Simulated scan of single mutants.
Amino acid sequence: MRSHEAKRRRAIPQEFGKRALDVVISVLAIVVLAPLFPVVWIAIRLDSPGPAVFRQRRIGRDEKPFNCFKFRTLCHKADENVHREAIRRAWAKESISNDPGAPYKLTDDPRVTRVGRWLRRTSLDELPQLLNVLTGEMSIVGPRPAIPYELEYFRDWHHKRHIVKPGITGVCQVRGRGRLCPEVMLEMDVEYAMNWTLWTDLKLIALTFPAVLRGRGAR
């Protein structure tokens, strides 16, 4: 009991530090990237009909659902069954891509728009999630927020990834999400959730930039 209480007390300043880091980085990023937001918004609207910002129900900390924001990269009202089938095949360890370097990433999704391909390649589609970070629903670093139907494939211990807030970037994004099967990604997410530190977060943030430049890990 004493060990548990000591661990909990140590976690309080870590949680405070993580939240402070989230607020500082998200505010700075929004200020610096503010001129880019209207450019992306206009490009999306000119490229295809539909709203520029896409809201999707995702699973947050303690498995509480929330609305996750992204710049829209798919055709408006795209059929979600395409992604559902891709998830099923990925869990069966079947390749869902023509790219041998990213067998578990849906790289040739016919629903993706022209601008959407560019946004995904540069990870700019994730920028609106800075608002989710500011509201406390997400963190800069953490497991990617799961779509509710993905939980159908989780084993009991996979749910431990939800003891922390989902993040914009994380271990899987840095190590190349498309090259990893879903179960391996969840193992990495659980390992992060159980053992994260502020130093770990800072390292992952630093490693995100070269990962984005290489075009790895976008989702």
Rank of each mutant, 00 (worst) to 15 (best):
A86L: 11
A86T: 13
I87K: 04
A92K: 13
I96E: 10
N98F: 02
D99L: 08
P100C: 09
P103Y: 05
Y104W: 08
T107M: 14
R114L: 12
V115F: 00
G116H: 11
G116N: 10
W118E: 12
L119K: 12
D125F: 06
L127T: 11
P128T: 01
V133Q: 08
T135F: 10
M138G: 13
M138F: 07
I140H: 00
G142S: 01
P145G: 15
L151F: 07
E152Y: 12
E152R: 09
D156G: 06
W157I: 07
H159T: 00
K160R: 12
R161L: 07
R161G: 00
H162M: 08
H162P: 07
I163Y: 00
V164C: 10
K165N: 02
K165A: 01
P166I: 01
P166S: 04
I168E: 05
T169I: 04
G170V: 02
Q173A: 06
Q173F: 04
R175K: 05
R175Y: 07
R177T: 00
R177P: 01
R179K: 14
R179I: 03
L180M: 06
L180A: 01
C181M: 01
P182L: 05
E183I: 15
E183P: 04
V184S: 12
V184I: 12
L186Q: 05
L186T: 04
M188E: 14
V190Y: 00
E191T: 02
E191Y: 02
E191F: 03
Y192A: 03
M194W: 02
M194R: 09
T197F: 02
L198V: 10
W199S: 10
D201C: 12
A206K: 12
T208D: 01
